Simulated scan of single mutants.
Amino acid sequence: MIIGLPKETKEDEYRVGLTPGNVHTLAERGHKVLVEAGAGAGSIISDQDYQDAGATIVAHAADAWSADLVVKVKEPTPAEYQYLRKDLMLFAYLHLASNRELAEKLLTNEVSALAYETVQIESGMLPLLMPMSEVAGRMAVQIGATYLLKTQGGRGVLMGGVPGVAPANVVILGAGAVGTNAAVVATGMGAMVTVLDINYERLKSLDDRFSGRLQTRYCDAFNVRQAVYDADLVIGAVLIPGGRTPWLVTRKMLPNMRTGSVIVDVAVDQGGCVETTRPTTHSHPVFEVDGVLHYGVTNMPGAVPRTSTFALNNQTANYVACLADEGLAALQNNQALMRGLNVYRGQVMHSAVAKAFDLPCISPQKALVA
């Protein structure tokens, strides 16, 4: 099979979909890998590194997109819509439930698109989302601490406080991978941390793990309001696999929040769990509403691309190899990949995406057999 690795076109995105190690594995299995010149530069991976691993360097994005299977990090941008076609397999983060334009383009062009974020193993874990959730969760606290500085527009609160002065109050909405990693860093910095979730087992696990160094609360509207009003930093860490995130913090709640407090909405890729959140970029990361700073960068791990690229590829490697070896037939024997299929031959294959746009959902098993 021919695998294409184009350079990412999303603003301030420095990750890359394949490392030289994964290219080497694919080449050893008899596949041809076309790498767009400069694709790995943001992650400090040179064209020569890819050539040494067995790739062919191509000058233009169109050449990489001409492949049977295109592997990316982020979803195609409008500049890349011209490359979408019927016989293309696409494997990347897609977040279609919050991007109707892209969903329609993929459906119209009958692309077979698999989303990293919906590949799911039997335990319910999302193995291709996990490494970036770990990165984003840890980054969220660092970013929040930065914007709490008065010089950055925040309240002027030090995360860990000092003797005689209370530390920052950090509220984390969601106790999954993002929330847990945020809790690790926030407690490590000495902050007062409260984590809210609807899953009792997750809350119990955090309570046991942190031995009283954080508080856990059930995530209902009353508790969210109470926690958010007292927070210096709110981290949105809610996830509905493949679906749009519900708003837990509404527009009318903001005037009751502390002036200069900070919201870091990691869920922004799926629409955000804060009503006033909107997508931002690393170049222009924050905006203010009612005295509250909002950070809504949609590719947070892209700011640490060297770490993120290798962490992501550690998880994607086997799935990419399966698709390269067998094409879509690999899905019949790999239920995790089957759950990753979002659209195929102009039809929606994932229930959360279908629900977001009020479209019919087709069983991927039946569609592939047909």
Rank of each mutant, 00 (worst) to 15 (best):
P246I: 05
N318Q: 14
E80H: 11
P163E: 10
V343C: 09
A336H: 02
D232N: 11
V157E: 05
L173E: 07
C219Y: 00
A115M: 06
V73N: 07
V289D: 12
A227M: 10
K86M: 07
V178E: 02
D232R: 01
D47R: 04
I263T: 11
D68E: 14
Y218K: 08
T146P: 00
S308K: 08
T25A: 13
R339Q: 11
V33N: 08
N313I: 03
G327M: 03
P131M: 07
D49I: 01
R217C: 13
V58C: 11
P78N: 11
A367N: 05
L5P: 10
L331A: 08
V185G: 03
S133D: 06
D47G: 05
M125Q: 13
I263F: 11
S308A: 15
V58G: 10
G161A: 01
E28A: 14
T280P: 15
G164P: 06
G302A: 11
M349K: 04
V135H: 06
P20N: 12
L293A: 05
V268P: 01
G161M: 03
Y83R: 09
I2C: 01
V353S: 05
D63W: 02
F210L: 10
G296V: 04
R209N: 10
S283H: 12
N181R: 11
M139N: 07
I45D: 03
I263G: 13
R155G: 15
V141P: 05
N169A: 13
S112W: 00
D208L: 14
K7F: 02
H24M: 12
A324M: 05
P127E: 07
A191H: 03
E275H: 03
Q82A: 15
A62P: 00
I240H: 01
S43H: 02
V286F: 02
M300F: 00
Y229V: 06
E75Q: 12
V184G: 06
E28K: 14
L196K: 08
V348T: 09
L328W: 02
V224L: 03
P246R: 04
Q215N: 15
Q335L: 08
L102K: 02
V348N: 02
D325G: 09
V238C: 04
I3L: 15
Y116P: 00
Y344A: 08
E36I: 07
P305A: 07
D220R: 04
M338F: 03
G243M: 04
T276K: 00
R138F: 04
N22D: 14
V369D: 15
D52V: 12
D207I: 00
V224C: 02
R213S: 14
I362L: 11
S112V: 00
S133F: 01
L34I: 11
G179P: 10
P163L: 11
V249H: 05
G236A: 04
I235M: 06
A136F: 01
D12T: 13
D52C: 02
M1C: 09
L254C: 03
I121N: 12
V262I: 07
N334G: 01
N99L: 05
G153M: 07
L254I: 02
M139A: 12
R278F: 06
A61E: 13
C219R: 13
L312S: 13
A55T: 07
G260M: 10
V262T: 11
S123E: 10
T180A: 15
A177R: 13
L34P: 10
T118R: 00
Q152L: 08
R138P: 06
D207Y: 05
G38M: 09
L359M: 15
V73A: 02
R251E: 15
A182M: 09
A115C: 09
P285H: 01
D208E: 14
S363A: 10
